[in-house]
Nucleic acid binder design. Structure first.
Lengths: 251, 251
DNA sequence: TTAAAATGTGTATAGGTGACACAACCTACA
DNA sequence: TGTAGGTTGTGTCACCTATACACATTTTAA
């Protein structure tokens, strides 16, 4: 941390950060990857700073890779948070002190920051969560039971969730959140979790298949109780085409 | 300009600007308010910097008011442009020289900037366009015949237009772009202009009225050739309610 | 063997969309 | 003055989609 404070002003764009809301889906629950901050009980979104000559999108990609080990991820900018009050000056000074230094006036780190929010959709099982320098844990948290969060990170997360809920209306979701093979009930559960409401099983299937982005694999998932459901996977070509032109109809 | 360069580093947030895409509607044409830059034939979006302790939204509002004299305007953040290559270092140095100064290395103005894009919808006739320090004209330009623009301002404008075209699918548009009283053909023309395609007169009316956000004033607009059309205005309460919850159906 | 629970498939109805017809109206021009 | 041309007001019809619901099939557990 101390070393970071020394080089930060040289290396990073001033007053600018990125924060990532990383969504995953596991055991029929929508999860977010959060960091447990050191020396406090609060949690934070994975975030970081943008290098002086780096595209902001790449800054976000870098953060994502550092926290999950994953590359080539669906990542999308969704909002800029630029309220001057979003900065917790007290906490910054505290962090400064904990690094064994005196808070220097006008230090790069103590200025006001605006942050660009990104959200990512990743396959839960592939991620390898690891904390950063200022956190002592990196864990998946259920979207329904979120912990106390620093600064305006709760608000950022909420806005990301709103965006996701909205995007689901005109873009196909799921390819990045589910394993390669999945059943229709699993896909439906994902939609229900994101939307926060129940959907009719039969109408869901009809509408989903009508998009033409699913491949019926013919196989069934045996082992569970009850009737074995068919397995599907996304037709990547058609899925990507739908991503570009969008889908019709709303959920 | 020279004075600006002196105080900028003290006053403004480093490496951050806002650019506004200001839409207006006049004589059945969609217009954008652009600035003709001094010492070049290129045009630019009205933009500015954000003060150190100012909400970025307020920075955009300030820009808008300075260029148009209007307050209380529909203004919405739509994207952040953070490509390091978007900055034209040559042009900045040129501007520096024109202000009669030597370009100082590491000067606030010469660093890399990211910009937050906002778009605004305003009533054409109420605006009072005026240039800023670095431009010698501020004019409405037809969206169909845009001039050469500096930096990535063409791309920013394009993205704003895409956003507007998309927003029109689920949010009511028009209240801010039309006079208080307007006819159905006028409203339709606005939609057609934004969407860039023709719509069926009768289906348009049916769908629009179904939203329940219009008030039929009973009056007719006389004077023009042909049959006098009815005048409508927006039911502000219902319009605002629709703004929040969104509309169904797509254009 | 049977009950419970979940899956696969189908149908009827209502509401919205797109394409189009016809009557009413206003002005301009002969 | 009256007629033509263009525009507006209103209505209809076929089609698609969304919604609500029924019934048969499959699988495990008791």
């Amino acid at each position: 941390m101390s070393e970071f404070l020394d080089i930060a002003a040289e290396k990073y764009h001033p007053g600018l950060s990125v924060d990532c809301v990383i969504f995953g889906f596991h055991e029929n629950e929508l999860k977010v990857l959060l960091l447990k901050m050191k020396h406090t009980s609060k949690w934070a979104l994975p975030g970081g700073f943008v290098e002086k000559n780096e595209h902001i999108d790449l800054g976000a990609i870098r953060v994502l890779e550092n926290r999950t080990g994953l590359k080539d991820i669906f990542l999308k900018q969704f909002y800029v948070f630029g309220d001057p009050g979003r900065h917790d000056h007290e906490m910054d000074i505290e962090l400064f002190k904990q690094s064994g230094r005196d808070p220097v006036k006008d230090h790069w780190f103590l200025q006001r920051f605006i942050t660009v929010g990104y959200y990512a959709l990743i396959e839960f099982s592939k991620a390898n969560p690891r904390p950063d320098d200022i956190s002592d844990a990196c864990e998946w948290r259920n979207i329904e039971e979120l912990p106390d969060m620093i600064l305006d990170h709760g608000e950022i997360l909420e806005k990301a969730l709103d965006t996701l809920r909205f995007q689901i209306n005109y873009q196909p979701i799921g390819h990045k959140l589910l394993p390669v093979k999945f059943t229709m009930p699993e896909l439906q559960k994902l939609y229900e979790t994101i939307l926060g409401k129940e959907l009719d099983r039969r109408n869901f299937q009809r509408k989903m298949l009508a998009y033409g982005i699913l491949k019926d694999l013919g196989e069934r998932r045996k082992g569970g109780a009850h009737k074995a459901p068919y397995l599907y996977s996304f037709d990547v070509k058609k899925y990507n085409a739908a991503l570009k032109i969008g889908l019709k109809g709303s959920w």
